[in-house]
Design a protein around this nucleic acid. Structure first.
Lengths: 199, 199
DNA sequence: CACCCACTTGATCGATCATTCAAGTTCCCA
DNA sequence: TGGGAACTTGAATGATCGATCAAGTGGGTG
């Protein structure tokens, strides 16, 4: 099986869905960018939705190697790992002139009546991200107030990342992103301080 | 000038962009739903983008009367006004079975290369929302720690609202929204407590 | 009454959409 | 070496897209 062409299609689609969105990316766009002919694409994927499924699966399977391990390369403090991860998105925003946000977030808002497979994959991608942050928080457990709900806090951090990217892209101003991260940092600091207080 | 038809078109477009998104809503959709013929629509609007502009202007001009005054009807405490506003989106999510999120947020992520008018209107709509929340925070100024950046905090609250809606819609689970608001509440409480400390 | 102009009707346009398919080509295995 | 499966080519399809426009209708004004 020639998975070379298949992979080129998926990678091209990933990039284009990322930048233009799913609905605004035509099959013709993908074909011309990936130098593949329609027959080949439809040999591997029954339809456009199935291509989206493959893209989301690819993204899901690459989170560890392509996102976390890179962002965390030179971070040992688990709290700083979280901010390093957020900084990765910041860099993506700036390097692409605000074209790149979060691939999953874009799709999550765009797809209004998703195929169950797609909704599930969006969910799994969010869940994996939250899990990774939650593991960081759990590693810093003794520095946080007793009884801190680390899952809810990790979810909250994803929320801020998605919301901050949305606003920074709209304003085309990285300062919006930075201010949001700064307030998050203040919240974390308040938690760390509170944990030091005598109970 | 017959602004009756015009208004019906704008209201229909608002609702459909809200639920299906801009790209996924066709002119034909709007025509059949609003019982208007294409010639009439193009009499009032040169093109689809101009219709989106009208929708965003309509939304901008209605924020005070249609959003804030309703959410704040029986709230006097400025902090509680903020949570009442957030609760309005919560109700919208539940009543529409997760179809309604934030009209502006959806469009902000969907429109990748916006007409300058559109980007500006998205920005203004966000700015008005932030201003409203900032006014609440300023009203509660003496209860917050000295030197609190109320603009950044208001921006942060919008961020959380947008991110929380995104995740709750994807999971189709209101508990996600609630957990996010709960963490925000904890943050606000930490600020209120800190303000009471002797300096 | 006559004229005009705002507005409506609805058929129609070319472009683009996702998708199909018959006719290739390549390559592995028997 | 021959056959068949995997894959490629690229023209073609019908549907749908946003947009156009000539022919109306109706109400207000001169």
């Amino acid at each position: 099986m020639n998975s070379d062409t298949r992979q080129r299609i998926v990678m091209t689609a990933l990039e284009m869905f990322y930048v233009k969105g799913y609905n605004s990316t035509s099959i013709a766009d993908i074909l011309s960018r990936s130098q593949v002919h329609s027959g080949s694409l439809y040999h591997f994927f029954p339809g456009k939705q199935d291509l989206l499924v493959a893209v989301l699966e690819f993204y899901r399977d690459g989170i560890e190697d392509n996102l976390l391990s890179i962002a965390w390369a030179d971070q040992t403090d688990p709290i700083e790992k979280i901010f390093a991860l957020l900084n990765g998105y910041r860099i993506g925003l700036m390097m692409s002139d605000f074209q790149h946000g979060c691939p999953i977030g874009n799709l999550a808002l765009e797809i209004s009546e998703p195929d169950p497979r797609i909704r599930e994959l969006l969910d799994v991608n969010f869940a994996n991200w939250i899990d990774a942050v939650e593991r960081c928080l759990n590693s810093a457990n003794e520095r946080l107030p007793a009884g801190t709900d680390t899952h809810a806090l990790a979810e909250f951090i994803l929320t801020i990342m998605e919301g901050a990217i949305m606003q920074a892209r709209t304003a085309r101003d990285i300062a919006v992103f930075d201010r949001n991260i700064k307030v998050l940092r203040q919240h974390i600091n308040l938690l760390l301080e509170k944990a030091k207080e005598p109970s």
